Simulated scan of single mutants.
Amino acid sequence: MIKVGIVGGTGYTGVELLRLLANHPSVEVQVITSRSEEGIAVADMFPNLRGHFDLCFTVPDVDRLAECDVVFFATPHGVAMSMAPDLIRRGVRVIDLGADFRIKDVSLWSQWYKLEHTCPDLVEMAVYGLPEVNRQQITDAQLIACPGCYPTATQLGFLPLLEQGLIDHRRLIADCKSGVSGAGRGASVGALLCETSESMKAYAVAGHRHLPEIRQGLSEAAGRPVGLTFVPHLTPMIRGIHSTLYATLKDPKDGLQSLFEERYKDEPFVDVMPEGSHPETRSVKGANTCRISVFRPQNDDTVVVLSVIDNLVKGAAGQAVQNMNIMFGLDEASGLGIVGLMP
């Protein structure tokens, strides 16, 4: 059994990790931490986990976490980089669901996250945990930087086109909508029901923290720096991301459907839908699946890709478990064979 520790077990991604790991056949969760909820039983805070975990939240302790085989950080940025060095020195494998190790340019990271990075050497060794791109590197990694939710949906949608050099890499547009859980579990006026229900709004149009991460991944796929306009929106739903992606084809022609089908034919968690389909966020609710469809409206030179995920699963906890499975040589789908919830 793989001994697992979770730092930050009370946020939405933390409890989602617990939900997924509760039925994982090869995992034993030994430590779940929370400074604010120390001593409280996990099942008392999250009754859906009753009968699955007989653990209480504890204050993070490196010595106790070091007894685990792998530690997940489901924490705000800045937390993982304060503890990961000690754990890695002791041979523990680390999967960070936060942003501490995603961006390779440390000065750029500091610019967007308003913190000085305390362990840039670990940024260099971290593997970006998008299995559809870095599966081989994930196998031998000791530190995984799990991608963000917007970056996951956006990169998976653009990758086949950029890898084949079919689109103008200078003018990419990502128009993305997210459910309110993407803002986290902490109380804030902007996430209140009365503030979000029956309304939709764009935010961070001038610049969102996920922008440099998305650019980094797309630039690697294109083999050159890309130009990207990324506009996120907040929608009145709990879970889900819908990314509508636009690009200009260099040589407009048919074959885009087969291109996507071929690129993702062996990917267990990317579903290229039949031609003409419009994927819905509710079809991936609770599942570690990205559903994609591709269009060329009016047979013109614009390609439109629709990409949907559950931001808490394929956009966070599910992808983290997928990475763990790869790291430990398990069936990649172990513990993740969950069908989306309908309705």
Score class of each variant (00 low, 15 high):
Gly337Thr: 04
Ala316Asn: 15
Asp300Gln: 14
Met273Ser: 08
Ser82Ala: 15
Asp140Arg: 11
Tyr113Gln: 08
Thr196Pro: 10
Leu143Arg: 06
Gly286Val: 01
Asn288Ile: 00
Gly39Met: 01
Leu330Arg: 11
Phe328Gly: 09
Asp254His: 11
Arg170Ser: 15
Pro60Val: 01
Pro236Lys: 07
Tyr203Arg: 05
Met324Ala: 12
Tyr203Ser: 11
Glu213Asp: 15
Leu306Asp: 09
Glu124Leu: 02
Arg263Pro: 13
His169Arg: 14
Gln257Arg: 04
Ile173Cys: 10
Ala126Tyr: 10
Phe72Gln: 05
Gly255Val: 02
Ala22His: 08
Phe230Gln: 04
Tyr150Glu: 03
Gly9Tyr: 07
Ile2Tyr: 06
Leu172Asp: 09
His278Gln: 13
Val205Thr: 09
Glu116Leu: 04
Cys68Asp: 09
Leu49Trp: 10
Ala206Cys: 07
Cys146Gly: 04
Ala204Thr: 01
Gly329Ser: 07
Pro297Gly: 12
Ala317Asn: 05
Val27Leu: 04
Ile2Gly: 02
Ile40Ala: 10
Asn288Asp: 13
Glu132His: 06
Gln111Tyr: 13
Ala317Cys: 08
Gly190Ser: 13
Arg90Ile: 00
Glu195Thr: 15
Arg50Met: 08
Val321Glu: 07
Gly165Phe: 06
Val189His: 14
Ala206Pro: 00
His24Ser: 05
Val321Ile: 09
Thr196Met: 02
Gly182His: 03
Val272Phe: 10
Leu234Ala: 13
Val70Lys: 04
Glu116Ser: 15
His117Ile: 04
Pro297Ala: 09
His233Gln: 10
Leu228Tyr: 07
Asn288Glu: 05
Pro47Leu: 02
His52Glu: 10
Ala287Gln: 06
Val42Asp: 11
Val308Leu: 09
Val180Thr: 12
Leu218Glu: 07
Gly129His: 03
Ser258Cys: 01
Val313Met: 07
Pro160Asp: 09
Gly5Asp: 10
Ala145Met: 06
Gln319Ile: 01
Asn23Lys: 11
Ser188Ile: 00
Pro147Tyr: 01
Leu330Asp: 14
Arg19Glu: 13
Val7Arg: 07
Glu213Pro: 01
Leu87Asn: 12
Gln142Gly: 09
Leu245Ile: 05
Val70Cys: 15
His24Lys: 04
Asn134Leu: 04
Ile103Trp: 05
Leu211Trp: 14
Tyr246Ser: 08
Asp121Leu: 01
Ala84Ser: 15
Glu124His: 09
Val304Trp: 05
Ser110Phe: 00
Tyr150Gln: 01
Arg239Met: 04
Gln257Glu: 15
Leu234Arg: 15
Arg35Tyr: 08
Thr13Val: 06
Glu275Cys: 04
Ala316Arg: 01
Pro212Leu: 03
Asp266Leu: 02
Val284Ile: 02
